[in-house]
């Protein structure tokens, strides 16, 4: 590809003295001097979080306050920096949810490794892990920034949804005349 040489326009005398340009620049800077400030004073003023924001990954409960994660470990596998560790365990037999095969015994996300990519949220078949709108994360030790299950649920809370997938499964399994 041939380079196109564009002749630069010669500067006029006024431009070569710099002065009109400096005065014009001063006008701009002086205007900005009295303009409304664009900055948020952060701890007091919080930015508005846009929908779809990907903050800290959290675990959520369903509207009845029940654990959604079934410990399938897809998120653990998909996590690019390998920040998620899941130890699967059995669901206690008398909980009424024992038709679900597994629940996480331990679930940790190492926030020092997490890159906030959101793959875990995308891959989760149970919609149990969400990147929500917390963006400010700090701690005094490295251990403090490895979120365990309790902390993840504390951050995540409960999200509304109406799937109740496991309730329906239970209902389907126990319904008379319906066999698999």
């Amino acid at each position: 590809m041939a380079a196109i040489t564009v002749a630069r326009k010669p500067l006029t005398f006024a431009e070569r003295t710099y002065l009109p340009q400096i005065l014009g620049g001063l006008r701009t800077t002086l205007r900005h001097l009295v303009r409304r400030k664009q900055t948020l004073e952060y701890p007091e003023e919080r930015p508005a979080i846009p929908p779809g924001y990907r903050g800290v990954p959290t675990l959520v409960r369903d509207p009845h306050g029940r654990e959604k994660c079934v410990s399938c470990q897809l998120c653990e596998f998909v996590c690019p920096p390998k920040a998620i560790r899941i130890t699967p365990g059995a669901v206690p037999a008398d909980s009424g949810r024992d038709h679900i095969e597994k629940a996480p015994q331990a679930f940790t996300i190492d926030m020092l490794r997490c890159i906030y990519c959101g793959f875990c949220q995308e891959v989760c078949p149970e919609e149990a892990i969400f990147l929500q709108n917390q963006f400010s994360l700090s701690g005094y030790s490295r251990a403090e920034l490895v979120h365990d299950k309790a902390r993840l649920y504390e951050l995540g809370g409960t999200l509304p949804d109406a799937h109740y997938k496991w309730d329906r499964k239970l209902a389907a399994a126990t319904a008379p005349g319906r066999a698999h």
């Binding site: 800077t29 900005h32 001097l33 009295v34 409304r36 400030k37 664009q38 900055t39 004073e41």
Partner: peptide, 13 residues
């Protein structure tokens, strides 16, 4: 402060 004001910031406060 002047730097901040010119750049539409409040500056140290």
């Amino acid at each position: 402060k002047v730097a901040a004001w010119v750049q539409d910031r409040p500056g140290p406060n």
